[in-house]
Nucleic acid binder design. Structure first.
Lengths: 335, 335
DNA sequence: TTGTAGGCGTTATCAT
DNA sequence: ATGATAACGCCTACAA
């Protein structure tokens, strides 16, 4: 365990026979340094294996070159099968890597976790904060924005906070899905809605309701929380309350997957007796039986867009408060 | 955009009418401060909304209170459907939260990414480094260990580096799976192996080979890379080369899932004609048709164990070089 | 128990 | 073009 003293600017300077300032200039790519000296400094850096101390640097620059990605979710839900959070992480990681910034991941399911996130982010230990999904009307994004800390949310923040956000076109996607069902002759179309304390749940239900109402049909609603278990429960409930249904739009692929199975167990054929459409287009959707027709949302792209917006803010640019990414109906065999 | 100057120790000290040192003591929970003074300091902290500047703190303490979780994978693979990486992230996040440390996530799929990770971690910008899966004989873990930087790997590092690691009992799990097949009368047992530049792929194949050899049977091997697509390809190949096979062990659930589908398309019934067992026990495994018998690995627990070991090292404790977590055969209907 | 003062490794502002 | 030198905000002997 040779805790080799890591070399400092000072050490490099001595070795190269110059001052610390000059080394700093070379390290930071200033052009105002003579060729031969640059050369010598670079050699010394290489020989000593010098790496700048970020703490010292950010102490003076007031930047940390890292951004936080906050997931205000219970840990169990963050990494469920739906790939939403992983997709956002991946998109954010890609963009951040390109910008040479570090991704600091913060789960904040518990109240204690939420407090930690608040302390950390308001303490300006990151250059900006990304929120991946919000529950209810979380005041934190607004508070950060007010402190002048760059923030971007995934999904319109509930509670009317004036914070920039990126989202996918939930309503448009759902609307296309429901119209597809109608076009194919379905008239008794039910929905398994998502949780109503999350924008995604709210908007997808709104999309269903609008379209059903426009077509003069009757709504049939059961609620889930995006998970398979809740989807199975909701499907049973719908079957009980509306045994005549001929189509189901589920607000997530996981719930749709469970619905598929529940319908089969109940002796209904998909799509002959009941058509099913999901939302997300997770990888599994292509492998269900029958393969699932679903609304695709560009989730990795969402993560990237989120990050690009944040980087724009930190660069002092003005950005639109809302950025909506398109969704797309993917036709397979379930509807 | 009121970039309110954030208060410093100095400001709090003035407000509370004490010295910086005293404030520091209170903030860091020293007991050697008189009650009333503590009280006053706390009030000043609250009123000013003081939050310590971590950069300044770590500059002097030489600690960063953050640990890196490195995923040396192409981004597309890190967040595939198998939930392995998300599970590790989740486990690590849980333990780190308990220890009040920050999780810095680093994807390092590209050579450039790998270089970035190397710079960042060797530069001691984190208190320790966790590796989630390694490809081939990556020299980085060994290098970090030699620099005295705490490291723990998920999976035995290839290339004989002397680095502590945590892994699951691949061989034991596979062995149990294959013996289960044999017990049920299967004799022409094939395997879809994982990539042979990853320990998980290597060990699962070894488990298969050992058990097949012990039973005096003949091996039938095709290779995949843990993904569904590769699983489908491998299954086709096995069907071509060994049309008589009566069982398949796939080294991942995703490959098993694809095998299930490929077998059905080929007119084989599962499990009557061909029994199938997977590895992982992803959520989808319970929803395949038929539900998948598989070897469960405690993936979140792996992430937690990984992190606990690292925290022990940073605390100066001695730890065993290897920690192996048990796997378990989950019987469903495919075998 | 409390305060003083030095230093952690950089960057940035001046001179030179 | 290069070099002193003063911050940056905090912790921690050491002194009182």
């Amino acid at each position: 365990m040779t805790t080799a003293q890591r070399p400092t600017l000072e050490a490099v300077a001595r070795r190269a026979g110059v001052s610390r300032a000059t080394v700093s200039r070379v390290v930071n790519g200033s052009t105002t340094v003579a060729g031969p000296i640059q050369e010598a400094v670079r050699r010394a850096v290489a020989e000593l294996g010098y790496v700048p101390n970020l703490a010292a640097r950010s102490l003076v620059t007031q930047r940390t070159d890292s951004v936080a990605l906050v997931m205000p979710e219970e840990a169990t839900r963050v990494f469920s099968d739906d790939q939403v959070f992983p997709g956002i992480i991946r998109g954010a990681a890609q963009e951040l890597e390109a910008a040479d910034k570090q991704l600091v991941l913060m789960l904040a399911g518990s109240p204690a976790g939420h407090a930690r996130v608040e302390r950390y982010t308001t303490g300006r230990h990151v250059d900006g904060v990304l929120f991946a999904s919000l529950h209810g009307a979380d005041p934190l994004p607004g508070k950060l924005a007010q402190l002048g800390i760059p923030v971007v949310c995934s999904g319109r923040p509930l509670g009317g906070a004036d914070v920039p956000y990126v989202d996918v076109d939930h309503v448009g996607g759902v609307s296309r899905a429901v119209r597809h069902l109608i076009t194919n002759g379905r008239r008794r179309i039910a929905t398994i809605a998502g949780p109503q304390d999350m924008v995604a749940g709210i908007e997808r239900l709104a999309g269903y309701r609008n379209t059903i109402a426009e077509a003069g049909l009757t709504e049939r609603v059961a609620y889930g929380d995006f998970t398979r278990e809740s989807g199975a429960r909701a499907m049973h409930q719908l079957l009980d309350e509306h045994p005549d249904l001929d189509a189901v739009f589920a607000a997530s692929d996981l719930m749709a997957h469970a619905a598929l199975r529940t319908l089969r167990e109940a002796g209904r054929r998909v799509p002959q007796d009941v058509a099913v459409i999901g939302f997300d287009d997770i990888e599994t959707a292509a492998y269900t039986d029958p393969p699932l027709t679903t609304v695709r949302q560009p989730i990795v792209e969402l993560g990237r867009a989120l990050t690009r917006q944040l980087l724009r803010i930190t660069a002092g640019e003005e950005i639109d408060e809302a950025l909506i990414l398109p969704t797309e109906l993917v036709l397979r065999e379930s509807a």
